[in-house]
């Protein structure tokens, strides 16, 4: 994950008018974890099929001002590279996108991903494909995500993800083969790197992701949890509390916001919290309620089992009769 600071935020160019500046800036890409992992799975094919170029479509949503791109899903699009030209199977792209759109009506095409160590004229050709046409990024600028998994010695290293926003420059002149049609293509694009970060869509997904990540390290992944997670949670609360107490005891006052939050919380606490006896009574009542629910639920569970066993037994009797 790149820190935002290392990026120079240039004026973001638009796609409709080449090289025309748009006032927006600060573009950034948020990649949802499932999408990121899918990209890596698809890119893995490139390793197997000895460096045949593999590309795919990025799907997701844009923020209202068009500056924040959220990549939520991807699919592969077959392409054929011959010398300087590339044929992208646009029919496949179209069908898969329409199918995806059915179950995700609010999402659209954001751009494309690939895996290459350099940006060359083919990169521009593909980018041109994704920048134009109704079922692609148009009228918004397309983004490009590149996964680099080879180092200079052609050894596989931990994948590095870079995201770019592309802007057309120069006059559209070159004729290139894209898909089945011969199009007038803009051949030159400026690829401006923009920051990206990996995000989790929902809390549940984040919990699962943390489990998976832990699983890669420990080689076990727990999908169905019992109560053991409760003790983990309690330990976490415990350690958070001791950390806080240590901080307060240390007498430092560098984190003013935290101290302000704490003192405000203490000042605004409900009156009830000072009345230990009352509070204890409430807690005990609550515990009694929970125990009652537990008792009744157990009774239901047993009743159901009893009913099943009695029916089975009565069935046997009838057999003998």
């Amino acid at each position: 994950m790149s820190s935002d600071n290392s990026f120079m935020h240039l004026v973001r160019p638009g796609v409709s008018a080449p090289a025309a500046a748009s006032t927006a800036h600060n573009a950034q890409v948020k990649i949802h974890t499932p999408a990121m992992l899918s990209i890596l799975e698809i890119v893995s094919k490139q390793i197997i099929s000895s460096n045949k170029r593999i590309i795919g479509t990025l799907l997701g949503s844009r923020s209202e001002d068009g500056n924040i791109f959220e990549i939520m899903d991807v699919f592969m699009v077959p392409c054929n590279e011959t010398g300087d030209s590339i044929a992208i199977e646009d029919q496949t792209h179209k069908t898969l996108y329409q199918l995806y759109k059915k179950s995700h009506p609010k999402q659209s095409v954001l751009g494309w991903f690939g895996s290459s160590n350099t940006i060359d004229s083919t990169t521009s050709l593909i980018h041109d494909f994704y920048s134009k046409g109704v079922d692609r990024a148009y009228p918004f600028p397309a983004i490009h995500l590149n996964v680099e998994y080879l180092n200079n010695d052609n050894q596989i290293v931990a994948p590095k993800v870079t995201t770019y926003i592309g802007a057309a420059v120069g006059k559209p002149a070159t004729t290139a083969q894209i898909g089945w049609n011969t199009n007038v293509a803009t051949n030159s694009y400026i690829f401006t790197p923009i920051p990206n970060q990996l995000i989790n869509g929902t809390t549940t997904e984040k919990i699962a992701f943390n489990n998976l990540q832990q699983g890669v390290i420990t080689n076990t992944t727990n999908l169905h949890q019992d109560l053991s997670y409760l003790s983990q949670q309690l330990e976490k609360v415990d350690s958070n509390l001791s950390e806080l107490i240590n901080y307060i005891d240390s007498g430092k006052s560098d984190n003013v916001d935290l101290l302000r939050l704490l003192s405000n919380t203490l000042l605004n606490r409900p009156q009830l919290l000072s009345n230990i006896e009352e509070l204890q009574k409430l807690f005990r009542d609550h515990n009694q309620d929970v125990i009652m629910v537990e008792y009744l639920t157990k009774a239901v569970k047993d009743q159901i089992e009893l009913s099943a066993r009695l029916t089975a037994a009565s069935g046997e009797n009838k057999y003998e009769a």
Partner: peptide, 18 residues
Amino acid sequence: NQALVNLYLANLKSTEPE
């Protein structure tokens, strides 16, 4: 997972706990 995915996951900074 594919090897590349595991490589990626193992090299991520561990995400902040929920």
